[in-house]
C-alpha cells in the first residue's frame, strides 16, 4: 500500500526560513498539504484541532521545545501513534538517545538535503 501524499503534514520550527525550506522540499517530494507552527505549544493546539498524518519538528524552540512536544504527543491517547520526525541541529549522541526514548520516529540533523528527508519519510511512512 502506497503512502497517501495528500495527508496533512505539520512542520514546526522557530526559523521562518527553515519552515519555508522544508515546505518546498516536501512539495517537491509530493506533499502539498503542509501547515506550519513556530513552537511546540502552537503545534500541539493545531494537532488537537486538525487531523495530521505526520509531524516534522525542530528541537530548540521556546516556550515549548520539540522534545516537550514529542512527549505531549506520545502521552495523548488521540495523538500517540502519530509519526514524528525531529529535524534539528542538536547532533550529540545523548540527544538522539533522549529523543528515541521519548518516542521519536526518526531523526534528521541539520543541515540536511532532500534525499535524506525523502529517505526518512519513506522509513517512517513507507515507500511512495
Amino acid at each position: 500500500m502506497s503512502v497517501d501524499t495528500n495527508m496533512n503534514v505539520l512542520i514546526v520550527d522557530d526559523y521562518k526560513t527553515m519552515l519555508r525550506i522544508i515546505r518546498n522540499l516536501l512539495k517537491q517530494i509530493g506533499f502539498d498539504n503542509v501547515d506550519e507552527a513556530t513552537d511546540g505549544s502552537q503545534a500541539l493546539t493545531m494537532l488537537r484541532e486538525k487531523n495530521f498524518g505526520l509531524v516534522i519538528s525542530d528541537w530548540n524552540m521556546e516556550p515549548m521545545t520539540g522534545l516537550q512536544l514529542l512527549r505531549e504527543v506520545r502521552a495523548d491517547n488521540q495523538l500517540k501513534a502519530l509519526p514524528f520526525i525531529m529535524i534539528t541541529a542538536e547532533s550529540k549522541k545523548e540527544n538522539v538517545v533522549t529523543a528515541k526514548e521519548a518516542g521519536v520516529s526518526n531523526y534528521i540533523v541539520k543541515p540536511f538535503n532532500a534525499q535524506t528527508l525523502k529517505m526518512k519519510l519513506e522509513s517512517v511512512l513507507g515507500a511512495f
Binding site: Y15, T17, N60, A89, F112, N113, A114
Partner: peptide
C-alpha cells in the same frame, strides 16, 4: 537546481544557532 538552492539554504539556521 531549485532543490539544490533549498538544500544549500538551510545553512542559515545552523549558522544562526
Amino acid at each position: 537546481i531549485a532543490m539544490a538552492i533549498f538544500e544549500a539554504s538551510n545553512f542559515q539556521d545552523v549558522t544562526g544557532q
